[in-house]
Design a protein around this nucleic acid. Structure first.
Length: 333
DNA sequence: TAGAAGGATTTGT
DNA sequence: ACAAATCCTTCTA
């Protein structure tokens, strides 16, 4: 796909982003012009970060970065109360990966007086860079798992389906079924929020918002690569999704284990030094592996058979004291 | 009943 | 050719 194709389709998109030099400035602008995130609330927001992890915060922040104004922001957070709002009530301590929440409560922060603006600016900048970094990292992780590129424009129809399944899974959205079938990534990117909602009245708006995040991240990545800013550090690592070689199961498991923040509830180290890990949720891990390999019928029975093939190869073994769902890398990192 | 172990065969790259 | 997927039987906690 040529850059000309892209630039046409992304015109409206770029215009929304304003002409800023990097992502932080970009965040500055949108935060500064939005009623949802006042400078005075920076410390409070940092506290939110410390209390509940960054995901819910960064989604709020990123949505702000992406939405044209506070009105459309409210639309995003309130348009699908059935799918988003109850989650905060039902699972208040949900792990971020399981349920990064677009939390309307955090967006409704009220304005207050101007005190020590410079210090707030610095704190805000810290939060912003953290927020952007987290979003980029999470997208990177999803790309590895799904074996897709970060840029939705490059997706084919099967990549689109993977992304849809993944996003539904991650945000507990109702299944959209086949309404987005036959659409390429470019088709998807060209669709307005209204078109999303036409196809999927229940989760169209949320899916559109998340696609916007991906589009922004890809756009930022492109900009930052040229500008060589440190925000993109996480993207430059060579990863299995870009090596061309199909990923091995043991690599995939290590990838999950590398992201305890995201996958700690389905797989975690028991003893990282010895390479001993436990699969906490066998069905979940199998589902992720199936997603990664495009094998919808994958289950733990089959995944574990593949793990057992590693016994002979000396890649994975059962630990000395054998326990259910516990394995050990023969050569820990 | 879910998981562990491993044989046999098929599939996809 | 190779890794993984699939299907299977038998065993175990």
């Amino acid at each position: 796909m040529s850059n000309c194709d892209r630039s046409l389709a992304e015109d409206s998109y770029f215009s929304r982003m304003a002409s800023t030099d990097n992502s932080l400035t970009l965040l500055d602008h949108s935060v500064g012009s939005s009623s949802g995130w006042d400078l005075d609330n920076t410390k409070e927001n940092i506290n939110i970060v410390e209390r509940s992890g960054v995901s819910s915060l960064y989604l709020s922040c990123f949505d702000m970065l992406l939405t044209q104004d506070a009105l459309s922001l409210d639309k995003v957070s309130e348009a699908s109360p059935a799918s988003v709002a109850p989650l905060t009530l039902l699972e208040p301590r949900e792990e971020p990966e399981q349920c990064p929440i677009i939390d309307s409560q955090e967006q409704g922060l009220s304005p207050s007086c101007e005190i020590d603006e410079q210090e707030d600016d610095r704190s805000l900048e810290q939060v912003q860079s953290m927020v952007v970094g987290e979003v980029l990292k999470d997208i990177e992780t999803a790309c590895k798992l799904l074996n897709i590129t970060p840029d939705p424009f490059e997706w084919n129809t099967s990549h689109v389906q993977k992304w849809l399944l993944w996003t539904e899974h991650l945000y507990r959205l109702p299944h959209v079924g086949k309404v987005f079938q036959e659409l390429s990534g470019k088709d998807l990117c060209d669709m307005s929020e209204e078109e999303f909602q036409q196809r999927s009245p229940h989760s169209g708006d949320t899916l559109h918002a998340h696609l916007d995040i991906w589009k922004s991240a890809a756009w930022m990545k492109e900009r930052c690569t040229v500008a060589d800013t440190k925000v993109t550090a996480g993207w430059s690592e060579a990863d299995s999704s870009s090596s061309g070689q199909p990923i091995h199961l043991w690599q995939f498991l290590k990838e999950l284990l590398l992201k305890p923040h995201n996958y700690g509830r389905c797989i975690r180290w028991l003893n990282k030094e010895k390479g001993i890990f436990k699969i906490e949720d066998s069905a979940h891990v199998a589902r992720l592996w199936g997603l990664r390999k495009n094998r919808p019928a994958m289950n733990y029975d089959k995944l574990s058979r593949s793990i057992r093939q590693y016994y002979k190869k000396g890649i994975i073994r059962k630990p000395d004291v054998s326990q259910r769902l516990v394995y050990q890398f023969v050569r820990p990192v």
